[in-house]
């Protein structure tokens, strides 16, 4: 069994660890760093529960080897949540009851934040398309789309009013 020493910036903090070659990013975050917000489910890239950012872009954490991330920057739901980056999105999820059992929620939030970052006024069809790779087994999609749409509308109207949330 081979191990690799990696230095990764996780939520702004530099960490150095020795990891097994076969360890994927989510097992690294959960097992080695204790960051339990990113969830492990299908482990073959289908469900989206493990969505995190690597160097600013969302990825499937289960389809990225930790060993390949030496020098990379990783952001998880803990990081974006603690920084308040998606406070409004989280509030909308709560208001719309878009988190039912909550298992898919961190991945949904990461994916929704990604969409709103590149498209300030997505249509409902565009929202559905962007979260199409994230499964909610409670099937609460309607509420999730509502929450994302509400957040987009609020951000646009507060931008128009000259005040950032």
């Amino acid at each position: 069994m081979t191990t690799h020493s990696i230095t990764v910036t996780v939520n702004g903090e530099s960490v150095r660890r020795a990891v097994q070659a076969r360890l994927h990013l989510i097992d690294f975050l959960r097992g080695d760093l204790g960051l339990m917000g990113s969830h492990v489910a299908c482990e073959h890239g289908v469900c989206g529960a493990c969505t995190v950012r690597v160097d600013g872009a969302i990825v499937r954490g289960c389809l990225v080897l930790a060993a390949s991330l030496d020098g990379a920057s990783v952001e998880t739901i803990e990081g974006v949540s603690d920084r308040g980056e998606i406070r409004d999105l989280q509030d909308a999820f709560i208001a719309r009851n878009a988190a039912q059992c909550g298992f898919c929620t961190p991945g949904m939030l990461m994916c929704a934040a990604d969409l709103l970052g590149s498209n300030a006024q997505p249509t409902r069809a565009e929202i559905r398309e962007h979260i199409s790779g994230n499964y909610c087994r409670c099937t609460g999609y309607q509420a999730i789309v509502d929450a994302i749409e509400t957040t987009a509308l609020k951000r646009v109207s507060s931008d128009a009013g000259g005040a950032k949330p």
């Binding site: 890239g45 989206g48 872009a57 969302i58 990825v59 990225v64 990604d114 962007h130 199409s132 790779g133």
Partner: peptide, 9 residues
Amino acid sequence: IAHAAIRNR
């Protein structure tokens, strides 16, 4: 092709 998170890699 798949989804945004997969297209990124």
